[in-house]
């Protein structure tokens, strides 16, 4: 009995930490989402229970669907493009050549730079009138007239997605590189002897062995990108005319600009359920694979 108690006491700090910093806010957010709580009744504390009313309000709001669609587009392109480019770079840095480590470190600089700086610089570079991007594209003749990347409703989502891709590449590269380095060279040797082409080696050896790494990267990327906030906040604040509005920024606006805490909580929970759905899919998949092995 005494021994058992002692053992439990070792996990106590972790449990207390979990309860205070994760479970409590999580549970409280769910509680909030069922209440009519706003600036008018927050202090008085008489927020009535209104069942699913907040969820109904959110689901009947066209802006929710707009921002959800935009979040999905944003997430999809960020993941596909940054993973592809990350893979190319990882394959490149997986080879030994002079300056390899040095260049790899420089790649990471981009990842280490605070997003507030990256976002602000991209905002300047993409400026329609004085931005360097327009300047270069027009000067080399790719475009006739400048494009207002961030202030045109047709290009703003594209522009913030490109920024986010740039931000995500180094992380993808590092994860994929560690995966590539985990593949022993001897698995390629028989293939070389059998006369396999480079493509065949990639398709039948590298890719299958990399699948677990890519899956992890995609699920992490999905979770991380789906709840994007900072890039949007800095570059467009959801504008122009909500053309870059995403779910998490909308939730922030509801809670902290409009002080509709109940609706904000409901929206965050919806986003959480969507992410949790993918996370569970992934965990199932991983479990199945480990059973097979």
């Amino acid at each position: 009995m005494k021994k058992r108690f002692e053992n439990y006491s070792f996990v106590l700090p972790a449990i207390v930490f979990l309860m205070i910093f994760l479970l409590y806010p999580f549970a409280f957010n769910i509680y909030l989402s069922f209440r009519d709580i706003n600036i008018g009744n927050l202090v008085q504390g008489d927020s009535p229970f209104i069942g699913l009313e907040n969820y109904k309000t959110i689901l009947s709001e066209p802006l929710f669907y707009k921002s959800l669609t935009q979040t999905v587009i944003f997430t999809f392109f960020t993941l596909v493009v940054s993973t592809s480019i990350g893979f190319l770079l990882a394959s490149y840095f997986n080879k030994a050549f002079p300056g390899n480590k040095w260049m790899r470190s420089i790649m990471l600089l981009g990842w280490m730079t605070p997003i507030i700086i990256v976002g602000t610089i991209f905002k300047w570079m993409l400026d329609g009138k004085y931005g360097i991007v327009n300047n270069m594209l027009v000067n080399i003749g790719l475009m006739n007239s400048p494009i207002n990347w961030l202030s045109d409703i047709d290009t703003a989502l594209f522009a913030v997605t490109v920024t986010n891709i740039w931000l995500s590449i180094p992380f993808s590269m590092i994860i994929l590189l560690s995966g590539l380095q985990g593949i022993p060279t001897y698995v390629y040797e028989p293939a070389t002897i059998d006369g396999a082409s480079r493509w065949q080696k990639f398709r039948y050896i590298t890719l299958p062995l990399m699948t677990p790494t890519i899956s992890i990267l995609l699920i992490l990327g999905l979770i991380y990108t789906f709840k994007v906030f900072d890039v949007i906040y800095i570059m467009t604040a959801g504008g122009p005319a909500n053309s870059t509005q995403v779910v998490s920024y909308l939730a922030y606006e509801l809670s902290f600009n409009l002080f509709r805490f109940g609706e904000g909580a409901a929206l965050s929970n919806l986003a959480l359920f969507i992410i949790a759905f993918f996370a569970i899919l992934y965990v199932r998949k991983v479990q199945k694979e480990s059973v097979v092995h």
Partner: peptide, 17 residues
Amino acid sequence: GDFNQIVYTAMQKALTG
């Protein structure tokens, strides 16, 4: 908060066309 949002949304919609 609401009025703020209503105004800038109207401005953005009109100015971006």
